[in-house]
Design a protein around this nucleic acid. Sequence first.
RNA 1: GCUCAGGUGGUGGAAUUGGUAGACACGCAGGUCUCAGAAGCCUGUGCCUAACCGCAUGGGGGUUCGAGUCCCCCCCUGAGCACCA
Length: 857
Amino acid sequence: MKPTDCTDYDFLKIEPHWQAIWEQARPFRAENGSAKPKFYVLDMFPYPSGAGLHIGHPEGYTATDILARYKRARGFNVLHPIGWDAFGLPAEQHAVKTGTHPASNTQNNIANFRRQIKALGFSYDWDREIDTTDPEYFRWTQWIFLQLFKRGLAYVDERPVWWCPELRTVLANEEVIDGKSEVGGFPVERKNLRQWVLRITAYADQLLDGLKDVDWPDSTKRMQEAWIGRSEGAEVVFKLENAALGDLKIFTTRPDTLFGCTYMVLAPEHPLVPALTGDAQRQAVEAYRKVAAAKSDVDRMSDAAKEKTGVFIGSYALNPVNGARVPIWIADYVLMGYGTGAIMAVPAHDERDHEFAVKYRLPIPRVIAAAGGNEQLPYAGEGKLVNSPGYDGLDWAEAKKKITADLAAKGAGKGTVNYKLRDWLFSRQRYWGEPFPIVWVGEADYARAAKRRGDLPAQPVTFVENGVTLCALPLPETALPLPLPDVQSYLPSGTGESPLANVGEWLDIWFDAETGAAVPASQGKPAGDTWVRGRRETNTMPQWAGSCWYYLRYLDPQNAATFASKDALNYWGVPDLYVGGAEHAVLHLLYARFWHKVLFDLGAVPQAEPFKRLFHQGIILGEDGQKMSKSRGNVVNPDDIIRDYGADTLRLYLMFLGPLEAMKPWNPKGIEGVHRFLRKFWRECIGEDGRLNPRLSETAVLSAGTEKLLHETIKKVGEDIEGLRFNTAISQMMILLNALLKEPALPRRVAVTFTQMLAPFAPHLAEELWLRLGQPGSVMSAVWPVYDPARLVASTMTIVFQVNGKHRGDAQVPTDSTEADLIRIANEHPKVSPHLSGKSLKRTIYVKGKLLNLLVV
RNA sequence: GCUCAGGUGGUGGAAUUGGUAGACACGCAGGUCUCAGAAGCCUGUGCCUAACCGCAUGGGGGUUCGAGUCCCCCCCUGAGCACCA
């Protein structure tokens, strides 16, 4: 290894020089099976968009890179990987437009991202690079899906999607704006399609409990808690007046208010509605249901904010606590997807019911008395029961328990828990995603296959289409990966299915249920009774799938036998630190936790939580304080900054901007400051002729104050890196450098130590100076400097003098000064004594080593 | 509407957790070098002052010898959630 021959700090020469060396020598390789302690630091891998790297990427990536380099210097075997979350809609849209395979566009974008990331000098282990669109990667995504499938955690259901008749395609939520397609502005409607759904709700409690064990930002934990939305209450059974129709089940968190129930509300889609509708009401009910059905959930919520609506449907239910006859309404403020889709309305003690009851003139009897005699309704707080025969005077918490128990004894209810969390809609009607390793077969064929297969779910996953029951038969694990077939057109099928539905040869097959082999149905049935007629699943997986488990593949990315070996899983475990944007606080981080917990239950991973410590880097705003966007023209391109100032300066500036987690504006002037700092240090080491600066000395020693500062800096920089406080670490190095500039000579060993501290932040410059300062090998393989605690102790201290709490002066005094000494010094102090003269000292407060406050009158 | 997180110089931000508010950097001003400019270097820079005094961490009140930091009320900004019964 050699340095460049630059005489000046020519970063355009120095940075590529070192990047070429790293490219060739691969010094950042993490070693599986090392005896060293491990440290796994993970970035959220990017979606390689056509726009290239955004300035927000290098922000988080620089932070983790500094930590990775620091940890290596502290003797850790560091795993610091990167890869590509490369399935996704933009690549597919590009393919539709250009007719080229999305893979080619994706590979181009990846090449550009890789170039940009390498230009920043990040110490990734490129031997572990992964790409979610690589069949050797998604083979394991499909494998994990099969594990979920086998455990009954995947099922199919008809679920609504956005369908645009004009474009003849389904649209993602983000492609629908105000009820119109984003492209073309055509009207869209809800259409029910067969969808895969993952039973994440089965893990609701575990996902909630696990949050206790992780070191995450509180806000993110709370968001996940709110998203899961656990709520305890009771399911209460109301008999219907028309007993032939059975019972009406409702969920409530307030069984203590049952005596205050004056009407019931069903969601408009509730299955009992048609049977409960009276002839006189039928027309109004039908009309209301139609309007509600046309609205999306989003519309329903925004409309609802304005005013509640509903219709009486002409039937009655019987309150199980007192037999009261309660009218049944439908209203769209009750959602079919939560609880039982039906509620008891207690207008006195629920704001929404109150608003509705006022509008439709329904009675509002009070059943909870507020403690302060507060008469205002609605009242949702605590209190004692009133107007509730048999329970009057009970405290509400007590009454909840007692009423629930009494209902249970009568078989009219039970305590129960509900969640806001819904099962995860896991399919997309798209081309550019992982195909489901599933073939749909007839019931009889499934039954035959089941005899030969041990990897089927306890209950078959079925779907009825045109009156025919189809069963989901998985590919055997040995038949994975199931790659995407080539298609003629990336346009959707026109029936709402993905473009895969157009590929007849791939779609309709003879399927060997034992081996997973397939031949086109057009070729006729091969010999042997393991062959069944099938149609492949045409949906693909959502983009979340690949990112749900990528942190595990990095442990052992080339393994062809399993997603990661047991040894690798045991040695590396899960990331010690995960850094990424807060925009993933719920979805990605919840989905990944869910998959990880399933893998844990399978015995496939050794720990229950995937991300021990999580950190969100803040958003970098444009110069104008606005969010960066092309339309505002305030986007900062990393390539430009690297060209003008170098990667080291960009890295340093991104970290100097402010606390990592803060949202902060980019300031093009501010970057000059850190660039000057690097130049200053270069000039301290290298003279104008390109040789070592004569200021460097083997024999010189620092002044006592600067020597102390050096040790303080070593301490602070190390601690700040561990705590991800890079802005203050940099400012401390600036303080030290400013002091070194004032020294008569610079001891070479100090320049060396400074280079080491700077190395994680500005690695190219540090490597260059390390060699030029005559050090052997690479700065990265040097052991991190240690500070001497004895050097941190000063012989003098600064004491602040206050008179009646006001700062009046300070003095340097020997550390062994007593309070009496200090009072004497204060009295002699030219700034302090005027405030003391002619007054009498009442009291002194001495904070040892810091401050003396003299109270006088 | 609800729940968090924040409001510190002209700007980005520091402040050992109750002990010198404004570190470090940007910007600005003056000086130095230069034929000149750029770069560099030196000095200054919260506000008000000639200086002292005084004032100052969104506003108001409180606790304390002492409050950016703790407590109460209000205002503003950002994020998330938003009929979940």
